[in-house]
Amino acid sequence: MNETFTKAMARNIFYGGSLFFILVFLGLTYHTEKVLPERDHRENITEQVVLGKKVWEENNCVGCHSLLGEGAYFAPELGNVYTRFGGSKEAIMAFIKYRPVDGIEGRRSMPQFNLSDEELEAVAEFLKWTSEINTSNWPPNIQG
């Protein structure tokens, strides 16, 4: 970097540029918040969905699975699991409920979380709601 480009100019680019893009980012956040209701269908967030999210969090499901592509990559994507399981909450609940306590020899296996029926229902409702978010058509196919 030569002499005509001074440290003061570099400093101004740093402070000015950062401030400008922070403001743009905040503006876009405001706009996103305004249009989100059409895409996340928040009118369908029932008490059960809220409980389901809490059960999801308190069992650290994201430590193995991904949800809308975020999380761990050890177990299948669950953002569209409701669709993949043929739109059946019962199938989701049964899968979680009947995990073997000691796992499966040599294979990956989901732990037995001993969820109550209420919690099972709630998680299934949460995953159903999640599958209805407008994700711009992601994932590309049913396998997640």
Partner: peptide, 19 residues
Amino acid sequence: LITGILGTGHHYFWIGAPE
């Protein structure tokens, strides 16, 4: 910061945020 702040957008592709 000039690239990174709005670069946050690369996490907003498929989580329900506007296109």
